[in-house]
């Protein structure tokens, strides 16, 4: 069943990717500005060289031909050279991706760590103080503009209290040979607790900023799911059987109530991956989002194309994972 579903999803992926490529391409074609002009920033350059540069970037060909070439190459995994880095786009993206993934995972972790217990407690103590607190907290969570909250956090913790670093990913003095390229994990694997805490101190604020809205949403989902489970027959039955309340709650009820939370979390991770350029900008986090925004400004077409395709693929895959999790954890549902 799962294999079939996977095949089905992959088949769905293709038109989406094609559509995404077409849209990006049309948008780029309609956008004023010229990467060669940006690169030369108007310097006096002989026309032959400008011509040569346009040729090197493939800009001297008609748009449709360019698109065909792009599609053909993309099928073989070749996304061309970044106009400005003059290195393969895939390399440039791969360099920035670990930072984005690490930040996203950290945010996901924080969001889950906050929302699951909070959601459960809110459900158990429905309409009591903790429930109200959770409700107010999640309202704040979805209402905080991330860019502003990030600035305020920097102001408090990095500038005034000076307990956390202002920006960056890890102190340069930490030389940890890469394994996963996630700095926190690598420093643990290499047995460098000092570097681990250093990397952690760098990631905590951006991850927190990114996690807040997600934590807010997940808390609500967790609470609703828990309420539903608590009302269900088997929990009532378990109580009746005399199993301790604690045990019922944390062993039986939570297991089932986690399904929607995990599913939503998987889905939200997609928008988290694509939605963190603001946080990356504020915290100087060397991730992909910042790179893509910069690339739009300088008309670095190959990079934009490849990055957007990457986002689309992850989005579709994460939704697939969400569905899969939902079926796996919840035997009543079939794909």
């Amino acid at each position: 069943m799962n294999v079939l579903a996977l095949v089905g999803r992959t088949a769905q992926l293709l038109p989406v990717l094609l559509g995404v490529s077409v849209i990006v391409f049309v948008m780029m074609a309609l956008t004023p500005g010229d990467p060669v002009e940006v690169m030369l920033s108007g310097q006096q350059v002989p026309p032959e060289q400008v011509q040569a540069m346009r040729h090197d970037m493939g800009l001297d060909r008609p748009p449709l031909e360019r698109f065909a070439v792009f599609l053909g190459n993309a099928l073989t995994g070749d996304f061309g050279l970044s106009f400005f880095h003059r290195r393969p786009v895939t390399d440039v993206i791969a360099e920035r991706l670990p930072a984005t993934i690490e930040l996203t995972l950290a945010a996901l972790l924080i969001a889950l760590a906050v929302s699951i217990p909070l959601g459960v407690l809110a459900a158990v103590h429905k309409n009591r103080f903790i429930d109200r607190l959770a409700a107010i907290g999640s309202l704040f969570g979805i209402s905080l503009p991330g860019f502003w909250f990030g600035i305020i956090m920097i102001m408090i913790f990095a500038v005034h209290m000076q307990v956390l670093p202002v920006s960056g990913r890890m102190d340069y003095a930490c030389e940890v040979a890469p394994i996963t390229r996630l700095m926190t994990i690598d420093s643990l694997l290499r047995g460098r607790p000092d570097c681990f805490s250093n990397a952690l101190s760098h990631i905590i604020l951006p991850a927190l900023t990114l996690a807040l809205p997600m934590a807010a949403v997940l808390t609500r989902v967790q609470r609703a799911a828990m309420l539903e489970v608590l009302r269900s027959d088997y929990i009532v039955f378990a109580h009746a059987k005399g199993i301790s309340r604690r045990r019922v709650l944390w062993r039986h009820a939570l297991k089932n109530a986690l399904v929607p939370t995990v599913t939503v979390a998987a889905m939200e991770t997609g928008s988290l991956l694509g939605g963190n350029m603001v946080v990356e900008t504020v915290f100087g986090w060397p991730g992909l989002g910042r790179l893509v925004v910069e690339s739009i400004f300088v008309r670095n077409y190959p990079l934009i194309q490849a990055a957007v395709l990457f986002y689309a693929v992850t989005y579709v895959l994460l939704n697939f994972v969400a569905d899969l999790l939902y079926t796996m954890l919840n035997p009543r549902v079939r794909l």
């Binding site: 989406v16 559509g19 956008t31 694509g274 939605g275 934009i304 986002y311």
Partner: peptide, 24 residues
């Protein structure tokens, strides 16, 4: 549904930024 799927594949802010670059 296809158009929706395609648009959902774009990160919201990046899509908006690219459109702003296009339209001014």
């Amino acid at each position: 549904s296809r158009v929706i799927d395609i648009l959902l594949g774009f990160p919201y802010l990046i899509f908006a930024i690219a459109l702003m670059a296009m339209m001014g």
